[in-house]
Design a protein around this nucleic acid. Structure first.
Length: 245
DNA sequence: TAGGCCATCTGGTCCT
DNA sequence: AGGACCAGATGGCCTA
């Protein structure tokens, strides 16, 4: 339901009647049909069409008519009051809708900005690979879990005096390193057992594809829980280098 | 061309 | 009443 704003530039007798999008912030973009410019146009129409070129309006005299036909042109005022009230209500309703649309648009923009901020702190490979919204959320979920698990395992291994596969200091310095470390710890040969999981459904399988954006809940059948320990191929767009997993 | 992703609109609901 | 939030619908863009 979009039209190019420039397509709405209508001229009649050299006079610009409609020019949408020129003053709006998104003038370069597509302009919704229900933009405020549309309302302006409606406003003008409702006020009796005052901009109509001379001689073209409904009240223009017809040539060749006798004096009895030279009546005053019918006025817009002839519209019943109830109709005008209805029109006013309709305009008010439309105005409210447009404002609500704007708020909703801003709200979604804020949401997207937050998602972008989240993408910024997530390690992806290649660097500029952009995760989709759902991937971002799932990956963030798994990433947080992985970092938590890193800390937990580090504590666990340090307390048990085990050499352990983890090097927490390195892991914390590099998010990807953290992922790799946890991935190592989750491997079948790990000396540290892993019981935690970002998803209840995966609690029985420590070999989860925790570092992919795929759903940890497995609701979409991506890879959670995986069928085999090595599930690095399971994510459609795995943001983490395979070497790190 | 089908499917995925996205932005936007819209009406409903809840809250202040 | 107005705003925030939500979910469904719709259409555009992109890719396999």
């Amino acid at each position: 339901m979009f039209i190019k704003s420039e397509a709405l530039e209508v001229k009649e007798d050299g006079e610009v009647l409609v020019l949408l999008g020129a003053a709006s912030p998104g003038a370069a973009a597509l302009t919704p049909l229900s933009s405020s410019g549309d309302e302006d146009e409606e406003e003008r129409a409702a006020s009796g069409g005052a901009r109509r070129p001379r001689g073209a309006g409904p009240g223009a005299r017809l040539p060749g008519l006798g004096p009895e036909c030279r009546r005053r042109p019918s006025r817009v005022r002839a519209v019943p009051r109830s109709t005008r009230a209805a029109e006013t209500a309709q305009r008010l309703q439309k105005s409210r809708r447009l404002k609500a649309n704007n708020r909703e648009r801003n709200r979604m923009h804020n949401l997207n900005a937050a998602l972008d901020a989240l993408r910024d702190v997530l390690p992806t490979f290649p660097e500029d690979a952009k995760l989709t919204k759902i991937e971002t959320l799932r990956f963030a979920h798994n990433y947080i879990w992985a970092l938590t698990e890193t800390l937990r395992l580090a504590d666990h291994c340090a307390g048990a005096g085990l050499p352990g596969p983890l090097r927490p200091e390195a892991a914390l310095l590099s998010p990807v390193g953290a992922l790799g470390s946890v991935a190592d710890s989750l491997s079948p040969v790990s000396t540290c057992s892993c019981t935690g999981s970002p998803a209840p459904s995966a609690s029985t399988s420590p070999y989860s594809c925790a570092f992919s954006p795929a759903s940890p809940t497995g609701s979409d059948g991506d890879c959670w829980p995986p069928a085999a320990p090595d599930q690095r191929h399971c994510a459609p767009r795995c943001p983490v280098p395979r070497d790190c997993m």
